[in-house]
Computed example of a mutant assay.
Amino acid sequence: MPPHLESVFPKNEDSHATGGARIEVTPSRNQLTTSTTIATTTLPPRRCQGLDISICSILHHNVTSYPNLLGHVDSGAVEKDIIAIREVIDAECHPLAHEFLCELLQPDCRRAQVMSPSGVFEDQLLKPCRDFCEDVLSTCGRRLPPHLRLAIDCASFPSLVNGDECTAKPGCARELRVKGWPERVCDGVVDCADISDEDKCSGCSSESFR
């Protein structure tokens, strides 16, 4: 050991006995470096903001929040997947594929009304309804890139049947016509969760249905 360090790291005169052998312990060079700081990141509270993805201008709401329901942390991250998402929409694998994918990319955001357990007001995302998710993925799921498909867990989405608040299928009446069931629209029997198939029917006044 260099002489100038002997006063700092004197030899340990107390030795350890091991099986009859005596081993002297001397500080190593690595002991001169200590402490490692582990940084932790705390995400800020969720806040609603304006829509910023042009492909989702079809949505009826005008605010969203990040991270979205596909795990994108900002619009820049969305742009990396936008080509693959456009290909799914252009494939016309489901008449509501465009609406559903945009509900994941730019989900509706609700302003906080009550304080969270952590003591802050945090805005909340409104997820698509479970049946909406299952219906679209049944025909379009295989067209999505694996990392996006794995990010969508329909079973974890809220359900209108259970009375949960969620985004129902838009234009359900239109979907019935596309599928070849126009007779189900305005027949007096509700087929759509959003009651759109019995809304604005002939003989009914505004905001009423038969």
Rank of each mutant, 00 (worst) to 15 (best):
C129R: 01
I58Y: 03
D164F: 10
R143V: 00
E13Q: 12
T26H: 13
P27A: 15
Q49V: 08
G119V: 05
C56S: 09
P170K: 11
D74W: 01
E13C: 09
V63D: 03
S65N: 05
A91F: 07
C201Y: 10
T18Y: 04
P2G: 08
F121N: 05
L70S: 00
T139Y: 11
K11E: 09
P10S: 10
E87N: 13
L51C: 02
L104M: 11
Q106Y: 01
C186I: 14
F9V: 11
E92K: 09
V8D: 09
S54D: 10
T18Q: 03
L43I: 10
S116Q: 09
T167N: 05
I23F: 12
N68F: 04
D123Q: 07
I23S: 04
Q113P: 00
T64F: 02
R210F: 15
S205F: 14
D153I: 10
V189A: 02
K200R: 12
G19K: 00
P3A: 13
I85V: 12
C172K: 10
G20Y: 04
T64L: 03
V136F: 13
L51H: 06
D14S: 05
T167E: 12
S206R: 15
C172T: 09
Q113H: 02
R130V: 03
P45H: 01
R47T: 12
R130H: 11
I89R: 04
P10K: 06
H147S: 11
R177W: 03
G141D: 02
Q124C: 07
C204Q: 15
N12V: 05
G141I: 01
A39Y: 08
N162W: 06
Q49L: 08
S202I: 09
G119Y: 05
A173E: 15
P158C: 09
V185D: 09
I53Q: 13
C192S: 09
Y66N: 02
L176G: 07
P45N: 06
L176Q: 06
P145A: 10
D194H: 03
R177D: 15
S202M: 11
I83R: 13
A97K: 03
P145N: 05
D74A: 08
E183R: 10
R47M: 07
Q31K: 04
P117D: 14
A173R: 05
